[in-house]
């Protein structure tokens, strides 16, 4: 009588590996994709209005280009904080307080952070 847990433990890695091979997005990839969508959406992040980002067209240049993000924000939490409320670092910042003013939901901000962190 094979234990259920043993079967799961045996099959799980095969299933996960299989899902990657079959092209099903992992949780991370899905989030990154969502993050790019929200960032580029004019009615949501609209980040291209002020930042050069990746392959985005007609980027603005009020803010710095979003490149080398891991180097610029070694602490991911600090990147999230900057998007949530840029006024903490600089009360005169041009950047809208996306979290503080509920411009974006927490979920949207989390997704954007995952995307931006890949740049």
């Amino acid at each position: 009588m094979i234990r259920k847990t043993a079967v799961i433990a045996f099959l799980a890695p095969i299933i996960m590996f299989g899902s990657v091979l079959s092209g099903v997005a992992t949780a991370d990839e899905a989030m990154i994709e969502k993050g790019k969508e929200v960032a580029f959406d004019r009615k949501k992040g609209n980040c291209l209005a002020c930042h050069m980002i990746d392959d985005g067209s007609l980027p603005g240049n009020q803010g710095p280009p979003l490149i080398s993000m891991k180097a610029r924000f070694p602490d991911k939490a600090k990147l999230r904080a900057q998007i949530y409320n840029p006024l903490e670092r600089n009360p005169n910042s041009f950047m809208p307080p996306f979290g503080l003013h509920n411009i974006l939901s927490d979920g949207d901000i989390d997704a954007i952070v995952e995307y931006i962190y890949t740049l």
Binding site: A49, P59, N61, Q62, F94
Partner: peptide, 18 residues
Amino acid sequence: LNFSCFDCHGGGAGSMVR
């Protein structure tokens, strides 16, 4: 969105928005 007139037309003047 927390902008003042001066944000865009003072410090931001000459910059691009899209």
